[in-house]
Design a binder for these strands. Structure first.
Ligand SMILES: NC(=O)c1ccc[n+]([C@@H]2O[C@H](COP(=O)([O-])OP(=O)(O)OC[C@H]3O[C@@H](n4cnc5c(N)ncnc54)[C@H](O)[C@@H]3O)[C@@H](O)[C@H]2O)c1
Ligand SMILES: NC(=O)c1ccc[n+]([C@@H]2O[C@H](COP(=O)([O-])OP(=O)(O)OC[C@H]3O[C@@H](n4cnc5c(N)ncnc54)[C@H](O)[C@@H]3O)[C@@H](O)[C@H]2O)c1
Lengths: 221, 221
DNA sequence: TTTTTCTCGATAAAAATTTCTCGATTGGCA
DNA sequence: TGCCAATCGAGAAATTTTTATCGAGAAAAA
């Protein structure tokens, strides 16, 4: 398999889905699983799954499939989900609160160890067992705890400012929920999460079921 | 331009970003904008932007660029964001509450007109001015108000049940936040929103900055 | 007016990704 | 044991998406 370019992003995006499915399978006590089974459950092409798993370094056996526990462990390991990254979250608003309360995060590679906010109403409280601190504590805490991941859930207009602060503090990867393109040094990774992108795909598809964009060819009947 | 296959999904996912940028530009009173400017601001290739805009049916003028108001209106119109879809949300928990409070939704093609939940603690209250109703009211309301879009924010184990109910009620498109592959008839559109996909891309990238997956060639020094 | 420069539109090339095909391996079963 | 069916792995082909190139139009400058 060709690793010179790293793993294709689409593959990377599918792997967590496999993980989730495999976990349920493991709970149900399944020993082995074939790509076909996974494909049926997840509505994906078996060949593609096989290729994705190969990227993650997993091999199966003909006629049998993949051993579920090994496969799960292998994929989780590949994604770096067994040594959880510690993260901070900035912006303990609606979305921030939801993320703080999202228990599944722990099992998926990230643990939020502290939140930050400007609002005095929020600071020095705990939201879902995570302390909310004032912004001035950010740089020190990030440096002291060697935190690499920052989650950005402040309004769009504050995003760049907060981003700069994160970078200054030593954050290496930013998960950005604000709908802006952050400016960062080359050494910092930004992953944008844009809800409206998905929504656009949905509305566009929906719209085209009402009034298809393509005029149909003459019916050959 | 070739519309026989519909618009490419990557294009569709980029369009909302352009919209957001254009809105700010329009607020600032800009008359025209070139692909180059957009590309600089959004860190994208100008050629790609031009192609995306062409898919949306927008044309510019050489040397000048695109007129901002027309471009914005055109893209919004293309995405169906000017005749807002009404939607219901099921699962008024952490995430559901955040979405109900997300004001920007209105400007991006979807208005949540009602929420539903099984928990008696939640029902008959209003969250962010949206009423939360018990599940038994769902089918009637969806039918009566001719609602086509459903937002699914219940725990994974309830997702399929709720999905079936939505389909039965006449929902045509489901925006699914639960990490499961829903089973629906062909006529129903499902758009999955999987946070952990993005997170996987982020952690994988971060991991490879620490220990690149590719063994480096012999150092030529 | 003429020249220069910028930007679009269309087409072509390149790259990435998905899908297909085929042979090989394995386990089950007569 | 020997055959059959299921499944994997690898490479080829097809498709999709991104990037590059070129000519032309339009404004600004000379
Ligand atoms: N609510 C959603 O469902 C949702 C979904 C997707 C994306 N988003 C995006 O997430 C961001 C936050 O949305 P929200 O709905 O949670 O908003 P919100 O207003 O509820 O929360 C924002 C929080 O950030 C804090 N804040 C503001 N400026 C700050 C600063 N300079 N430094 C630190 N903290 C600051 C505020 O005190 C507030 O607590 C927005 O950019 C929004 O576009 C929200
Ligand atoms: N919290 C997050 O940040 C987050 C992020 C991404 C995805 N998700 C996903 O969104 C879903 C909800 O997450 P959450 O954190 O909001 O959970 P939550 O427990 O806070 O909320 C779930 C809500 O759904 C309601 N509910 C449960 N079963 C129901 C049913 N059968 N019919 C109607 N309502 C029902 C509950 O009463 C509760 O109000 C989960 O599938 C989760 O994986 C959550």
């Amino acid at each position: 398999m060709d690793f010179s370019q790293g793993v294709p992003e689409p593959t990377l995006r599918r792997l967590p889905t496999y993980c989730h499915f495999l976990r349920r399978l493991a709970q149900d006590g399944a020993d082995v699983v074939s790509c076909r089974q996974i494909g049926d459950a997840l509505h994906l092409d078996p060949t593609q799954i096989r290729k994705d798993l190969a990227y993650a370094g997993m091999a199966g056996r003909p006629k049998v499939g993949y051993p579920v526990p090994e496969l799960l462990a292998g994929v989780e390991n590949f994604l770096g989900w067994n040594n959880t990254q510690q993260a901070i979250l900035v912006g303990a608003g609606s979305l921030g609160t939801a993320l703080l309360g999202y228990k599944a995060m722990d099992r998926n590679g990230v643990r939020i160890v502290a939140a930050f906010d400007t609002s005095p109403d929020k600071t020095f409280q705990a939201i879902h067992q995570v302390k909310v601190l004032p912004m001035r504590k950010l740089v020190d805490l990030v440096g002291r705890m060697q935190i690499h991941v920052g989650i950005l859930t402040v309004p769009a207009e504050s995003a760049q400012t907060v981003c700069d602060l994160m970078v200054q503090a030593g954050i290496r990867a930013i998960w950005n929920f604000a709908p802006v393109a952050l400016k960062v040094p080359d050494t910092v990774i930004v992953q944008n999460e844009n809800l409206f992108s998905s929504l656009a795909v949905l509305s566009s598809r929906l719209q085209s079921t009402f009034q298809p964009r393509t005029l149909p060819e003459e019916d050959p009947s």
